[in-house]
Amino acid sequence: MSWAWFHRFASPPWVYGFAARWTPWFGGAALLAMLWALYAGLVLAPPDYQQKDAFRIVYIHAPSATLSMAVYTTMAIAAAVGLIWRMKVAHAVAAACAPIGAWFTVATLGTGMLWGKPMWGAYWVWDPRLTSELVLLFLYFGYMGLRAGIEDPVKADKASALLAIVGIVNIPIIHYSVTWWNSLHQAPTRLLGKADMVWPMVWPLLLMFLAFFLFFGTVLLIRLRAELLRRERNASWIREVLA
């Protein structure tokens, strides 16, 4: 098997061009999918027999929660690739992920609180799922703080990569917290196969998941270009792309 395609991702000018070419496609697809899913979730999906229309918060809460964990996983994998293969682009990907993931975590906690109040009677409880998600937010803050606190970019890459890799242990804790411990938070909902929800409720949610992943792709590509411009400021290819 040829690894030539993988080696291209180690080249900052190639990755910069790739990101610039693909950003509008990801962005356009994300916008279309998001608008369609929003309409379907708010208008077409039937109300839940127990939670009534409050269940519709799932269309913003569940994709945010999934992305908060998916972005961290991407960040940790990129950090590991950066450490093992000393790929500057991988460290740039990890650095670009952090603020995006932190914002998705804030969205998860905020929308979850607004769902918790009518369902549980409280905005916040020190439940395993909520607490581990809050720990995720602190991990993102720690990663960004560590990067900002070390002046030497190589040392900052290494130290923050180690933190990202160690912090990955929190991802399965978040995911399985509702089954490992007694939790107010509902257990994972099956969306495919023997689904826990009817199809008219499921497809707008799947579409919103797709929209959020496409949106993550869009903003990651934008932030990656910014990160590469900062890191490669003395490289000759910068002059060509800015011309």
Binding site: L38, D53, A54, I57, I60, H61, A107, T111, L114, K117
Partner: peptide, 11 residues
């Protein structure tokens, strides 16, 4: 009163 602030915050 819960749903619209949640969507407002999320988006």
């Amino acid at each position: 009163k819960y749903l619209w602030p949640a969507f407002g915050l999320g988006f």
